[in-house]
Design a protein around this nucleic acid. Structure first.
Length: 552
RNA sequence: GGCCAGUUGGUGAAGUGGCUUAACACACCGCCCUUUCACGGCGGCAUUCAUGGAUUCGAAUUCCAUACUGGUCACCA
């Protein structure tokens, strides 16, 4: 029995040939230097921080080169697939404002001419290539059970031999086609394996965009191509898809590095042009229990899910900026020199990419986020706060809506200046910083008044009373306002200037700072607030009186 | 265990043979500014680049060993 007859026995319904697919998915007509990348996640629900880094770059390079960015769904493992997993991924990408040129849009829709983009819908394509490999004697059906494989592995371990299905350990490799046909007809379960032409003692060299030249032993493993459920294994799907989708650059995590020899071999025997590869360092974190560095884990680490940042109200732009600083070591410097510029204007360079996995640093992200928010206009902060609170804090959202102009003015305090305040690192910080500005929240959420130097309530009442009667004038500019506080201080026996007090502490009861602190705490209950004058300006006469009257 | 990669401070890192008595940023610590806080300013924070050896007039930078860390060795991706 010939290989061709065997192939026909296994795949009688496959009539297309690899040549047909070459015509269906022709070479892309793109400008010189245009890069085609793809993000190829499994639909397990959400996008991981590490994948987001890869995705960001995979999106950025086509942007820089007039290329194409594809979203391909790798759902060949039905056990792992999650319901609405594709939607979850698409939502995460949308949240991060990463647009796709081609690929899946939802569980059922897609865009682009190189589809289907969901692997489970590409079954017959893989079968076609599997068939052609069988015809050429480069693949064969394997009838080994999981138990048999396990047994072989144990023997190999015992004898300290290299583990795997290869050479003489590949029991089904040298079966005759007659026997193969007989067992297939008999209904024995089987899978399709590669008949690897590799020799372990030989070396393959390949050039990784991030790591440079790497030498591996050739692959001699008869890896699985098609599983018993008829779907392909990652390696096979990757090679077929990235060829047919005309991917030029394969970006993926470092965890794939060790299977590169398999991929090189597959590209080779299939006659496919080899894309460029970039294996990115993993995003790590220190395990709290063991103290060891490890890969950021979807299951263990809440901060691994990109949705976490959405829930925290950390602007997606800040997360992207942070990831870019991890991604390209010269990005941060560039950003400092070009504050406020969009990261898309930065030119990405694989050479500036670290090969070692970096620890995920939430502090740094927070800092970047703080700086990012400080550069926004009050209107932008308002709009973003609105979006955030609408989803996560309806009560505060209603207040922001009700007091729109007031809120914008509030966000504008100490914002329109060369070095703006940096109070908020995330939108969830806004409420804890500003609740006292809203009367609806003030009575409800105020705790104890945080009096500082002047604690005596009679003295406080005296100060406030005198202030309202004699020294408060709504029309005052900031300088005059403060002058009047000094006058008040003087009248009550406090120093006009802090310096004077420090030089002669015995002469005074305190100083103007203590007086203004009384006013500050009386207004807000807090001893730490933004510029008091501006807060009072915002409140207006009536609300100031009301606030001060609450001190009893 | 085999194979592969990585190893510069608490963190991200610059650095590709002399310009490095190791940049920058985050964190931390001082001081200054200041009516609070924040901002800002100034200064401190690796005599040393995992360890050992070799090459060289000279090495974080080249080479070789060793150690450690990570990844991978599935009909998972």
């Amino acid at each position: 029995m010939t290989d061709k007859e065997l192939a026909n026995l296994i795949y009688p319904n496959i009539t297309k040939t690899p040549e047909d697919y070459e015509k269906i998915y022709p070479k892309r007509d793109l400008k010189e230097g245009a890069v085609v990348t793809r993000f190829a996640p499994s639909p397990t629900g959400f996008v991981h921080m590490g994948s987001l880094l890869t995705t960001l770059i995979a999106r950025k390079i086509p942007d820089e080169t007039n290329g194409v960015f594809i979203l391909r769904i790798e759902d060949t493992d039905q056990k792992r697939s999650v319901e609405n997993g594709i939607t979850g991924i698409v939502d995460d990408l949308n949240n991060f404002d990463i647009k796709i040129d081609e690929g899946a849009l939802s569980e059922t829709e897609e865009i682009g001419k190189y589809g289907p983009y969901i692997q489970s819908n590409r079954k017959e394509i893989y079968e076609c290539y599997a068939k052609s490999l069988i015809e050429r004697g480069l693949a064969y059906p394997c009838f080994c059970s999981a138990e048999e494989i396990e047994e072989t592995r144990k023997i190999q371990e015992l004898n300290k031999e290299r583990i795997g299905y290869y050479g003489s350990f590949a029991k089904c490799r040298d079966l005759s086609n007659e026997e193969r046909a007989e067992r297939i007809k008999r209904g024995d379960p089987y899978i399709i394996r590669l008949k690897s032409p590799g020799v372990y003692e030989k070396k393959v060299v390949f050039n990784d965009l991030v790591r440079g030249k790497i030498v591996f032993p050739e692959n001699d493993l008869d890896v699985v191509l098609i599983k018993s459920d008829g779907l392909p294994i990652y390696h096979f799907a990757h090679v077929v898809d990235d060829h047919l989708m005309r991917t030029t650059h394969v970006l993926r995590g470092e965890e794939w590095l060790s299977s590169v020899p398999i991929h090189l071999q597959l590209f080779d025997i299939l006659g496919f042009e080899l894309p460029k590869f970039a294996h990115l360092g993993l995003v790590m974190k220190i395990d709290e229990e063991t103290g060891q560095k490890r890969k950021l884990s979807k299951r263990k680490d809440k901060e691994a899910a990109v949705s976490y940042y959405h829930e925290q109200g950390i602007p997606v732009e800040a997360v992207k900026l942070y990831l870019m600083t991890i991604g390209n070591s010269n990005f941060e410097e560039w950003l400092n020199q070009n504050p406020g510029r969009d990261y898309n204007e930065f030119k990405f360079d694989f050479k500036k990419m670290s090969a070692s996995g970096s620890l995920f640093d939430l502090e740094k992200l927070i800092n970047i986020s703080r700086n990012y928010i400080s550069r926004l206009t009050a209107q932008e902060v308002y709009d973003n706060a609105l979006k955030y609170t609408e989803e996560f804090d309806k009560e505060f959202y209603d207040l922001l809506i009700k007091y729109k102009d007031y809120s914008i003015n509030m966000f504008n305090i100490e914002r329109n200046q060369k070095k703006p305040r940096k109070d908020y690192a995330k939108y969830s910080d806004i409420r804890p910083y500003t609740w006292y500005m809203f009367d609806e929240l003030f009575d409800k959420e105020k705790g104890e008044y945080d009096w500082q130097e002047i604690k005596d309530i009679e003295e406080i009442k005296k100060i406030l009373k005198l202030y309202l009667e004699k020294y408060y004038n709504e029309e005052d500019d900031e300088q005059t306002w403060f002058e009047r506080l000094k006058d008040l201080s003087e009248e009550l026996g406090y120093a006009r200037e802090v310096k004077d007090y420090k030089e002669n502490p015995d002469k005074y009861k305190g100083h103007v700072g203590d007086i203004s602190m009384v006013l500050r705490v009386a207004m807000s209950t807090k001893s730490q607030t933004p510029n008091l004058y501006q807060i009072m300006k915002l409140f207006g006469k009536k609300r100031i009186r009301e606030r001060l009257k609450k001190i009893k």
